[in-house]
Design a binder for these strands. Structure first.
Length: 684
RNA sequence: GCGCCCGUAGCUUAGUUGGAUAGAGCAACGGAUUUCUAAUCCGUAGGUCGGGGGUUCGAAUCCCUCCGGGCGUGCCA
């Protein structure tokens, strides 16, 4: 379905160096640093490399002469001139220039670079070592349908997992199921007390169960407000669910499992899959918490409060949360002022979510000395199986091993930063300092609704809310855009476009193309914003297929495929094998030696940068960096597409060169999109 | 009150961890298609980077302060 078959095996020959650009930069850096040290006796603290503002000024810029100027007591520009003339020659570098007030600008050998880039098999540097990474994302309360906020979480987490895996890291994706929380309890109360339904009756509810519960959940709030005694039902239900082995717990189990199935289905539409679904109920029933509780008590990480507002609770104190060694060094004078304290165990003996989360985090890092049982829960079309935890089972039956990660990323929205800090503080208090350092709260801002979006949805806003830049999504109020609705709308819109362009295609193919475009649009939309930017959701922007969107990038790939196909139809000798051959047997050397002009070099160099963008995106934990980069590459390619008609290019060598460049870009766009979880349709 | 985040063009935003002339998209206006399909491209216009002070060769980026907005600070999650 992707690309045309002729070009599929274009990277058959072994690569010279998989990390060609990164390796080249590294070797140039080392050369320059060594030169500076030997000549000026100065060791540079860090060697910053950047890109000059214009291609004509060079490919790499080194501003270190400004730093060196102080130590060497010379003008930066003079230093730069000395170094530029004395540092060469360097492999892969054609010349070194002095620029501006003292930059050292390096020009790469374009012909050599182009050939190496063409032959590079992989554009992702493989990291060495590093154990398993446990990546937790999605974590939707199993009591209602997924909404756009959940989609942002899942797409960020899924994309980050893809990026890590692309660099050869082992990643285990976990989707935590809070099946014993208040939100599930609320829906259970709704079924039992508002609708008076038995389990058997609930089982016969047809259609989208998550949608049914979405409405029910929204109505429970007003049910609680109606009579004070109604509100007491929640606590009772929660207690029954936690205890297990009763009718309420059975009902909760059915509801949560059926909704988890709905969530998996929704997420699969976006290409998001999981390895493990750990359930909170299993953490409780397997006494993970009891064990963690003992550890916390033993290390003095939590205290039983004997007076004040938290009397009878086990709390983690503010001082302990920030304490490095976990020792309680509280000022006795401030004993009564504990606004920052966090209750871990309530006075009725039940544990809060954070407490359970500490136990879970310990297990994820292999520090608990306990394990779940597992069973296959869901098999994907790919054959991949998502396992679910169990509170009982047979250890003899072979199941994959889960947990015990050396690093943990928790994809959780930024509003929970306080709680995430407490979880990490808990690790520190137990003496697991290194593990605490390797636990990352992968935080992101919420998806809110723009006032216009609320209008579109027919939601009445108060005058106050209308003045706000955005309105928060609220599952409790049923205020939000459901994920499946949004995806359906996107597909319908895309289908209209496809139908208008390709009326002759069979219906199933039209729908398949529309779906690929819709998912591409949605994933890109959720990824193009950096993590700490609030997305004020707006239908017009989310449904757009033009400008900075997923379909724009997909379109560039489709165009490249069209070039390959058309050119070969027109000139059978000009196929992928011939192009590769021309590069490898040196018959293009004379053309390349004449020089790749600035315009085409700029494009080549941009295409090479995918491999530096990936580690950057991982280091910053910022998938948006890859999305932004791909858009700029697609944009540059579209410009190229208009300027150069490859099919009618009369000069054979130039024609092969342009095709080779198109292949280079096509391969990077395809790989980059795949890392974002975006596929490319056969036609657009 | 305290803590964290944000403020860049009319709107939505990026900015390579302090570098050269702050980039995009949308919207607006003017152009380009008998084409490797225009879900595209080119051009025009639009910026006191919230205000002020500081740090230094150099600040949208770091520090201080003020203004404006958001989130958190639950025996909810």
């Amino acid at each position: 379905m992707l690309g045309c078959s002729v070009f599929r095996n274009r990277f058959d020959s072994p690569p010279k160096d998989e990390r060609m650009l990164a390796a080249l930069i590294e070797s140039i850096k080392q050369r320059l640093a060594a030169h500076v040290e030997s000549r000026y006796g100065y060791r540079l603290a860090q060697l910053i490399v950047e890109q000059p503002p214009k291609t004509e000024m060079g490919d790499l810029a080194f501003p270190f002469c400004f730093e060196l100027a102080k130590a060497a007591r010379k003008a930066p520009r003079q230093l730069a001139a000395e170094i530029a003339s004395a540092a060469g020659p360097i492999d892969g570098v054609s010349q070194i220039q002095v620029a501006g007030p003292g930059y050292i600008n390096v020009f790469l050998d374009r012909a050599t670079f182009f050939k190496q880039l063409f032959q590079a098999r992989s554009t992702t540097p493989k990291s060495t070592g590093g154990g398993k990474i446990v990546l937790e994302h999605t974590n939707i309360n199993p009591n209602k349908a997924a909404h756009i906020g959940h989609l942002r979480n899942a797409v960020l987490g899924d994309t980050f997992a893809r990026l890590l895996r692309a660099t050869n890291r082992q990643v285990e994706v976990q989707n935590y199921i809070d099946d014993t929380g208040v939100q599930v309890a609320d829906v259970v109360v709704g079924f039992q007390r508002m609708e008076n339904k038995t389990l058997a009756e609930i089982q016969t509810i047809p259609g989208k169960f998550d949608y049914y519960c979405w409405d029910l959940y929204a109505n429970v709030s007003s049910f609680y407000e109606r009579k004070p005694e109604n509100a007491l039902l929640r606590g009772a239900a929660l207690r029954h669910i936690e205890e297990g082995n009763n009718e309420t717990a059975e009902l909760a189990r059915y509801v949560s499992h059926r909704i988890v199935e709905c969530h998996l289905k929704t997420m699969q539409r976006l290409g998001v899959e999981y390895d493990l679904l750990p359930k909170e109920s299993d953490i409780l029933h397997l006494k993970f918490w009891n064990h963690a509780f003992e550890l916390l008590k033993k290390h003095g990480a939590i205290h039983l409060e004997s007076s004040g507002k938290n009397q009878g609770c086990w709390v983690m104190r503010a001082a302990e949360k920030s304490s490095e060694n976990g020792g309680a060094t509280l000022d006795p004078a401030s004993e009564t002022e504990h606004d920052e304290d966090k209750v871990i165990v309530r006075s009725n003996g039940t544990v809060t979510y954070v407490g359970k989360d500490i136990a879970y985090q310990l297990w994820k890092l292999g520090l608990l000395g306990m394990d779940f049982f597992y069973h296959p829960f869901h098999q994907y079309a790919s054959g991949h199986v998502a396992y679910m935890t169990n509170a009982q089972g047979n250890r003899e039956i072979e199941s994959p091993s889960f947990g015990g990660g050396s690093e943990v990323y928790n994809v959780i929205d930024s509003r929970q930063a306080y709680l995430q800090n407490i979880v990490v503080a808990g690790l520190r208090a137990l003496g697991f300092k290194e593990q605490a350092d390797r636990s990352t709260h992968f935080s992101y801002e919420m998806v809110a609704l723009s006032p216009r979006c609320c209008e579109d949805l027919g939601i009445q806003l108060s005058e106050e809310d209308k003045q706000r830049p955005y309105v928060e999504v609220s599952g409790r109020k049923g205020l939000g855009v459901k994920a499946d609705d949004l995806i359906d709308t996107l597909i319908e819109n895309a289908l209209q476009e496809v139908a208008s362009r390709h009326a002759d295609l069979p219906e199933t193919e039209k729908r398949q193309i529309a779906t690929t475009i819709a998912i591409g649009a949605l994933r890109y939309f959720l990824l193009k914003y950096t993590r700490n930017s609030v997305i004020a959701f707006d239908f017009r922007e989310a449904l757009s297929f033009e400008g900075e969107t997923g379909p724009y990038v997909q379109y560039a790939v489709v165009r490249a495929n069209n070039i390959f196909r058309k050119v070969q139809e027109d000139d059978p000798a000009c196929n992928a094998t011939a192009v590769r051959g021309a590069i490898e047997n040196g018959s293009l050397d004379s053309f390349l030696a004449k020089g790749i002009d600035d315009e085409l070099w700029k494009l080549t160099y941009l295409a090479a940068q995918l491999e530096t963008q990936i580690p950057l995106a991982i280091q910053l934990a910022e998938p948006a960096a890859v999305a932004k980069y791909l858009f700029s590459l697609a944009q540059a390619f579209n410009n190229f597409y208009h300027k150069h008609r490859i099919m009618i290019e009369p000069e054979p060598q130039r024609k092969r060169f342009l095709l080779a460049l198109t292949q280079i870009i096509h391969a990077r766009l395809l790989l980059g999109l795949d890392l974002l979880g975006i596929q490319v349709p056969s036609k657009m």
